[in-house]
Design a protein around this nucleic acid. Structure first.
Lengths: 340, 340
DNA sequence: CAGATTAAATGGAGCGCTCCAGAAACACGA
DNA sequence: TCGTGTTTCTGGAGCGCTCCATTTAATCTG
């Protein structure tokens, strides 16, 4: 009723669906169908609506669509830290799987909480996301709030009840890295680890492989998390404790960078005097200065799997919770070689 | 009217503002005031409302708030590429300035376009952002669409009409880096540059400083943009063309990493045989392996300035367009030294 | 070619907030 | 006690969509 008398759009006002409808000579409902790419719209009308949209420079209101539809067609991703680049492929994987289905991806950063929001999840729930990907260590507070399908990406310490887990197989990756070094002939191998579930599992793979081969696992943990400086410091300690060490497996590429610094500072050339292997296959690893042999966790696949799990749970919330592990693979570069 | 008869919230339904209102024994309008942190609410009622919110686990609908208020209290940021970490400080600066005023920050990635959206700006406009920060090279299409206050962060090739520009002073930074090398005693200095406005200006600063000191500017541009491999390749060329080169200034830290690889491959130690200076003061620069002397563009300040400009233009859209340059500063580390 | 079936298009009723004009409650001096 | 401000609080009217039950148009079938 309010719109019946309107023939032209008032100037200075953003056009809405009614403006488009009257410009195209159709009903607002038809415009809505075109916007959502629904089937069962005649080509002629669809074209007319699209032309009107173009002509009016119309842009649909996400807010109205979300409110009316009671769903945002958006998947929220909780991120740790932008400096750790593993999330880039994760996002790409999520997007590739979700975009064709009309879903958007929205990122929430724990450090960027808005007024009243206690956790980044609050912000996402306020925007009525249809699902949540937790790509950080979950907290009690966080998952107490979640009432939409959720999946935890990456291996974590805490388990979120009701959430699927999709991650690369960190234990296997740790084993793979260690196996590679042993295969090269190394016997004195150190592992630089950090805090967090993924690092723990990688260490576990290292430990299992070493013991399985009758070798002594030597591990050093950085003071902090899994940063460059932690890798540096831990590698330094490793090298000090056992000067006959010929290889180091770092829990991730960033720590491997730190380990490379430690090796340089101790006069050890890579790979001649010390083999070094990282984890993540980050852009860093392919740098010419390092040419770092590493493990690729195939995070794009993890993103794809996370999207898959979310989609399934959105269709049927009663789907039993499951864990999906993506097989990691060894990426050979120039930082590992047979011991002298 | 629809809500008058409702005493308790139906189970399984998300509570809304009316549920909170009746639980707290106040009107929905009062709840709205509390939600927005408005003044002029008695402490007693405010507490009652907050208690009800807590008890019902109520989470306001952003969609409804945006729709009703005709504004989202959100600033959109268009990002280039997550791998280039300069945006991290930019976001932090934006957030710190904006969050206390109740604004959120939403990120749009050009590679992640949704259905119907031609540019990442479309997505942001659909969510009715109150302002846009363009932290990437703008395109014609992009700014044709923008009808909210906009600011371009960083120096770009294209000028967006009506948008303020906030950036670090790349020319000055280029001059600073070059001055540092000259001051150290270097005479044969090369510059590794890339595509894009910022790189061009940094090269300009390099050029000016070299000529001003009566030295010959030697520049090599990578094939691609400003990636590690481009830095590697360009530095290799530089070293080949002029073996007596004693210092290289790279357009950013990532390219500097590439240049460090080139130096290593040509048997040049840093800083003994070759001084190297980067730009951006990224986490990479502080790595122990590089200890890279670099220029800090103070992107946090840039973010702050961008927020400031947006806020001003939101208050008064007629504010004349202006450019704000943040003074960069030299960060001394171990990759530069006097020539042998 | 009438009747049945299917496809295409429509109008109304919300979704959950904000904004605004005005009502109610409170304060205070004459 | 009563005006007269000054706070504080309230109800109504949308915001621009989606969803759904219907209507209308097109197509088929014997």
């Amino acid at each position: 009723m309010r719109h019946n008398g309107r023939v032209t759009q008032e100037i200075g006002k953003r056009p809405n669906i009614y403006d488009v409808a009257s410009a195209a000579g159709v009903s607002k409902s038809l415009v809505s169908l075109v916007l959502r790419g629904a089937p069962g719209v005649s080509p002629a009308r669809r074209a007319a609506v699209e032309e009107a949209i173009e002509r009016l420079n119309y842009r649909p209101s996400r807010a109205a669509a979300t409110l009316a539809g009671n769903r945002s067609r958006t998947i929220g991703v909780v991120l740790d830290d932008y400096r750790n680049l593993w999330f880039v492929d994760l996002l790409a994987g999520l997007h590739d799987r979700l975009a064709p289905l009309g879903f958007r991806v929205a990122v929430a950063d724990p450090s960027f909480n808005a007024h009243l929001d206690r956790t980044p999840v609050d912000g996402l729930l306020s925007m009525r996301v249809d699902g949540v990907v937790i790509a950080t260590e979950p907290t009690e507070e966080m998952f107490a709030a979640v009432d939409v399908p959720a999946v935890v990406a990456g291996n974590r310490d805490m388990v979120v009840p009701g959430a699927d887990i999709v991650a690369n197989d960190d234990v296997m990756g740790g084993r793979l890295a260690t196996e590679h070094l042993i295969g090269l002939g190394h016997r004195e191998i150190g592992h630089v680890t950090g805090a967090g579930g993924a690092a723990r599992l990688r260490a576990q793979g290292f430990d299992a492989m070493m013991r399985g081969s009758g070798l002594r696992p030597q591990v050093a943990q950085g003071q902090g998390l899994t940063m460059e400086s932690d890798g540096y410091e831990a590698a330094l300690r490793l090298l000090e404790e056992n000067p006959s060490l010929t290889a180091i497996f770092a829990a991730n590429d960033t720590m491997a960078l730190g380990a490379a610094g430690a090796a340089r500072d101790r006069g050890r050339r890579i790979p001649e005097d010390l083999s070094l292997i990282g984890y993540d296959n980050s852009p860093l690893a392919s740098a010419n200065l390092l040419r770092l042999t590493t493990i690729d966790g195939r995070n794009r696949q993890v993103g794809d799997g996370a999207a898959e799990a979310l989609l399934e749970r959105m269709k049927d919330p009663a789907t039993p919770v499951h864990t999906k592990l993506v097989e990691p693979e060894l990426v050979l570069r120039a930082s590992t070689a047979a011991p002298a």
